[in-house]
Design a protein around this nucleic acid. Sequence first.
RNA 1: GGGGAUAUGGCGGAAUCGGUAGACGCGCUAGCUUCAGAAGCUAGUAAACUUAUGUUUGUGGAGGUUCAAGUCCUCUUAUCCCCACCA
Length: 813
Amino acid sequence: MKRYNPKEIEPKWQDFWQDKKIYEADDKSNKPKKYILEYFPYPSGATMHVGHVRNYTIGDSIARFNRMSGFNVLHPMGWDAFGLPAENYAIKTGVSPRVAIDENTSHFKKQLIQMGFGYDWSREIDSTKPEYYKWTQWFFLFLFEKGLAYQKQSSQFYCPKDQTVLANEQVENGLCWRCGSKVEKKSLKQWFFKITDYADRLVKDLDDVNWSESIKSMQRNWIGRSVGSEVDFSIDGSEDKIRVYTTRIDTIYGTTFLVVAPEHPILGNIVSNDQKVAVDEYVKQSQIKSEIDRQETNREKTGVFSGSYVVNPLTKAKIPIWIADYVLYGYGTGAIMAVPAHDERDLEFAKKFNIDVIQVIKPSGDNKEEIFTGEGTLINSDKYNDLSSSDAREKITLDLAQNGSAEEKVNYKLRDWLISRQRYWGAPIPIIHCPTDGIVPVPKDHLPVLLPELDKFVPGVDGKSPLASIDSFVNTTCPKCGGSAKRETDTMDGFACSSWYFLRFADPHNDSEAFSRSLADYWLPVDDYIGGAEHAVMHLLYARFWTKVMFDDGLINFTEPFTTLRNQGMILAHDGQKMSKSKNNTVNPDELISQGYGADSIRLMELFIGPWNQSANWSTEGLSGTFRFLQRVWNVTQEYVNSASAHEGEESGDLLKLTHETIKKVTANASNLDFNTSISALMEMVNELYKLKIVDEMDSKSWNVAIPSLLKLLAPFAPHITEELWHDLGNHDSIHISSWPEYDEKYLVSDSMEIVVQVNGKVRAKLTLPTSYDENKIFDEVLSNERVSALIKDQELIKKIYIPGKLVSLVVK
RNA sequence: GGGGAUAUGGCGGAAUCGGUAGACGCGCUAGCUUCAGAAGCUAGUAAACUUAUGUUUGUGGAGGUUCAAGUCCUCUUAUCCCCACCA
């Protein structure tokens, strides 16, 4: 009898699938479509580990299950290959990023194929190839035309190690997201995408997508929509006003001081002569501090009195103006009304500088805290007394709006997306700077602006891209006037490439447009998008933004690119730590495969280890369990194939029931992505088959249903072994394009049922009774049962409950 | 400080509607098989008590609703993730 040897069969079927184009998606099909996508990876030189494998295993299982269930499936793969790792590697070794990336992609691709993932390789894309980035540049121009790409001089996050600016989203706790260096602030002229124009829709449309609550809340948090009011406070003894932003205008009667940010231009008008020295010194100090230091939460409040006062528009009280760096110039109006009784930061400041505290909100319950920041009822607020906080906010804003000194205002924490990078390995920004015409977009028919091959990759001086020193690249002619002009030498952030790649897969070889409208209409949006939570506020936000811009211009017919988002749980090392090369705790599938486990048992383990969306610690010990299971599947199928019996005997009710029950369970679980329980259901089936085999020796013709069903149900998870066994059964086509088995209720019915008997809430007996019995008959049986009647004895039966087919509950006293 | 998630045997985990807690797997124990080991097959495996039939306890903790709670309600604790002086 043939033995199960994954090393032999797996490469064989991988070739077979490629030859037969099993996984190529059909642009013209009568079947309903399903677009399953895993985030296209960055092809690093490192070998992928079992943590990466989980992501692709989940996507592949979904794709295979859908394909067998009758969908026309698009399951593509490509490379997000622009970015710093390849460039830094080039600086270190002199190997061109082009060469390194090509090597890495072929290595990565081999690993994916080795795991048996069924991708449509005819649609493979690479974001660093001119035929791809031509269209990334096209989208830049598209955004530019819409007024959504602009250049601005401003203070920005800058990574001194990577020598480039960073988007706000790419700074994590004051550190560069890529290299972990402490970022600095630099005032530079940079390109931005105006994502803030879409802030409101980016929040609202989250209601319509099927994403996890945690990712949605991360996005909402990041966008930081807040509804409040802007209010003018007029400066005492001056015509000038200071406008503040507050979400708690209901507390305005408690305002005992105003705070403006040190960068605020109003400072010139409000600083009194006797405070000038102190203020100048404070402003100087806060300039030295990086923005990061200023945002340190636990830092003690600092500030200085300006020497001027404002008048509270309602109480007409004179209120001092302070200057303090806990107010950020970049948010709201850069000035606040401080209400120490109802804001923790203001209270801290007031305490330090001995400023009055006036209570104006009464909590509904008892509040023993020193400070109350919640909603309540107004007190000490003149005619607004006794209003609720929310009513008061509306009324006060309305009243002050009468003379134009207040208005409702929505603010966002989200800032525009900084996309220019002073580095080489990215898509060049298709802009020409002309001394006469200024900023001139490269005409679309001149695209792509090719990224030149270099010998040296060291970043240029003065924070300039290495491209700035390539004269042949820089010097060009102005498309408008024909005079000599210079190219923009910054490249685009890699996240620009990934903001539209999911559209390219619908039409990957189109050389006249980024994608055809009809193919985008057919394939998009992505039905299932599988990836890690690390994309929560970067890629996912950017891609949603681009999608909305395209929709507004009529390029596509949908507003959200990813209908359902699946964030797989991380696979951790044995000890619960993150797997990483530096910790030397990675487990690589290559090694496991060479140890003889095979891709199938690894894939099975990735799914069986726990719910797909929860993290789990890798267990190579546990892997022997899934391997053993596959061996049992192998053995029982081989025995069926080689059995002396012709499998023409009587139908077996037990075998059919087992088979149909398993089909029902696996189908339900797999539709719900509960792959771990799908696999346990299959294990149960195989365990039962082993027992039945002994009784029946495979004579029954019902084996002809059981074995093929088992293989099909297992196929999405373990594609190689099922393909081999499927062919052993005499089939010639791939099992992966066979149809998913269906169950028939008629095989599930049974003529007996087990009734659990509870007495006063405790299980006391289990009775096997005919299903034909009605409620009365069942109570008769239960009450006449020896054990039950002994328990009840002469106690009074107060209540009896019957749950059909399941349980009888008796209450006695 | 704000938001999100999680908590069940030695371990990973399972449990449509509230209805037998611990499926399935790892590990462990015993038997068969084997020169031996490995592998395989069969059985057992929440805890305590019990010769046994059994009894009691048990899903982070405390209350509550119910004939019945891992599941529903109130409060609470711990861990993880994200954001964080955004007014």
